[in-house]
Structures are given as structure tokens and as C-alpha cells.
Simulated scan of single mutants.
Amino acid sequence: MPLSFCGNDDGVNAYSVGKGVLNNGCFVDALNLVPHVFLLFITFPILFIGWGSQSSKVQIHHNTWLHFPGHNLRWILTFLLLFVHVCEFAEGIVSNEMMVTDHLHLYMPAFMGFVAATTSVVYYHNIETSNFPKLLLVLFIYWVLAFITKSIKLWKYAEFKVGPQHLRFCITALLVLLYGLLMAVEINVIRVRKYVFFASPQKVKPPEDLQDLGVRFLQPFVNLLSKATYWWMNPLIIGAHRRPIELKKIGKLPIAMRALTNYLRLKDAYEDQRTAEDPNRAPSIWRSMYRAFGRPILLSSTFRYLADLLGFAGPLCISGIVKYLKEDDGNVTSDKNTVGVCMSGSRL
């Protein structure tokens, strides 16, 4: 079966725009390819030329140290965007199976969108590494174009009575929302860093810890993906497989994580509870700990509870599988009995 972007169905002129250009669904899907192709065309040369390069202004021994505003939110939104693109691709494949001929426009924009989203986060990581925020303008243009093209597609769906009861409408609406949020994140970076459209851009210096060659604990400074997977520890783990770890290879902790820093923080929270009206009042150690370390404690506790609850997922899944197999075996046994009775009857 020959491949065609708009299909080769008999008696159907898929390339006709007689009823309006935007009323042709194939053309709208082709329009949605434009932002993805634009991003890949612009970013690939930059990535190949500057892959692994460091900023010439700052000499540090780590390759990740700078986080732009909205760093974690951008990574979370990108992960969600990748997931929605996978759903869009699967929906396009299923829809294509119902067609007489192959319609590439049903799933190719989703595939290109997945590739472009992956490229965008790799490109963003390299920009953070090199501390050259002006290159973020490419991502800003991409989010704007993607938001506009997906909005046109959503508008046409609504115009042709394709509503929330259809999966493709819901996927497109989610994509519009995600592209809009990523565009807002990019605008916020421009507002805070002032790297363009402003006379005095904000200058950022690397953290003091990363200028100390003895600091090897990089958890606070790496990107969200590396934080979640502890990817930054790979050199230490690989080295531990080859030879015993030495103390100098472990290095020092960052200043914010040392015992003295935490003691001073707790002491300040403790002393802040003393008032001039009641100087003899005994401060609460629990309130002091909450003020000093409340956010990390609540976050770690939440993840701990979620991990414990998810620990029940495995046994529940196994229980469901065993129950399904028992029911299936029962059906097979009853079917065999039925067949046996029928065969006995035929012999009679």
C-alpha cells in the first residue's frame, strides 16, 4: 500500500481546499508540522556545534550549575508533553488502521512533536550549561508557533462538532494547555533574567560551592531528571566498581548541607520565638524545627507515604492476575466438560 501524507482513498480528493484551506484536516495537520520542523532545523546545528561546551566567562569544574526561573516546572511540563504526544501518536495509529489507505497526517505530527519536545529539553539543558539565555528565544518562538497551530486545530474540531467526548479533541486541548504553560514559563524567564528587550540583563554568578573543587555532592545543582534518577552519581558508582572509594573522592558537602549551617538555621528559628513582652517564655523546639526545615520535612514525608502506598501496587496486581487466571481456568474446564458431553452425545 503506497504511503501518502493525506491518503489515497478512491473518489476522495484529500488535497482539495475548495471549502477553505483550514477546513481541510490534512492541511491543518501539515500546518502543525511547521513548528516542530522549525525547532529541529534551528537547534540541531547549535547542539552539534556547542555540545558539551562550557561558558568562556566562568571556569568551573561541573557541567551543570545554573537553573533558569521555572526550571523544575519546565521539566515537569515537558514530561507531560512527551506523554501526551505518545497518546496522540497511538490515537493516530488506531485511526489510521480504520482507513482504506495510510494517512500519515494522522500520526506523523505527533511523532515529530515527540522528537521536538525531546530536542527542546536537551537544547534547554545545554543553554543552562553554557549560560547563554539569548538562545532561549528559539524555544519561545517554538512554543508560540505550536500553541497557535494547535489552537487552530482545536478550533476546527469544535467547529466540526468534535467535542470532549472524542479522544482526539481532549488530546489536542491538553497540548494547547501545555504549550501555553511552556510559553508562560519562557515569558517568565525573559521577565526575570531580562536577557532580551531590557537594557540591563541580570547577571548570575555560579554558586560558591561549585567553585570549590572539593565539593562533589551535586544534588542541589543538577537538573530535575538527574535529581530524580541520581544520574550525577554515575562517575562515583562506576569508580566504586573498579577500586575502593577513597574519602577524597567523596568530597565535601555543600555549605547549605553542613551541620554548622543547619545548626545556625535552627538556632535562629528558636531565638525568633523569644519576644520582648515575654523574654522568659520557653520556645517550642517543634515549631523551631518546622520553621527551619518544615518544607523539606513535609516534602520527604509526602514522598515516603506515597512510596509506602505504592508498595501495595505489586501485591494487588499479582492478586488480580491470579484471580483472572483462576477464572480463566474455570471457564476452560467448563468448556472442556461441555465439549465432553457433546462428544458423548454424538457417540450415542
Rank of each mutant, 00 (worst) to 15 (best):
4 S>L: 05
9 D>Y: 03
22 L>Y: 12
26 C>I: 08
29 D>H: 14
31 L>D: 04
36 H>I: 00
41 F>S: 15
42 I>R: 15
43 T>E: 10
48 F>E: 07
57 K>I: 03
60 I>Q: 11
62 H>V: 15
62 H>R: 11
73 L>N: 09
79 F>Q: 09
92 G>V: 09
96 N>G: 03
113 G>Y: 04
114 F>E: 07
120 S>M: 04
123 Y>D: 03
128 E>A: 04
140 F>L: 15
141 I>P: 01
163 G>Y: 09
176 V>A: 02
181 L>Q: 05
184 A>R: 08
187 I>Q: 01
197 F>N: 07
201 P>H: 02
206 P>S: 04
210 L>A: 00
215 V>Q: 06
218 L>A: 02
220 P>Y: 03
226 S>P: 03
233 M>D: 06
237 I>T: 09
239 G>W: 03
240 A>T: 02
248 K>L: 05
249 K>C: 05
260 L>M: 13
260 L>T: 14
261 T>M: 00
266 L>F: 11
270 Y>C: 05
273 Q>G: 06
281 R>E: 13
282 A>Q: 10
292 A>K: 04
304 R>S: 13
305 Y>G: 02
308 D>C: 06
308 D>T: 07
309 L>Q: 10
310 L>I: 07
313 A>R: 05
315 P>I: 09
315 P>C: 10
317 C>Q: 07
321 I>L: 12
328 D>V: 00
330 G>P: 00
334 S>F: 07
346 S>K: 14
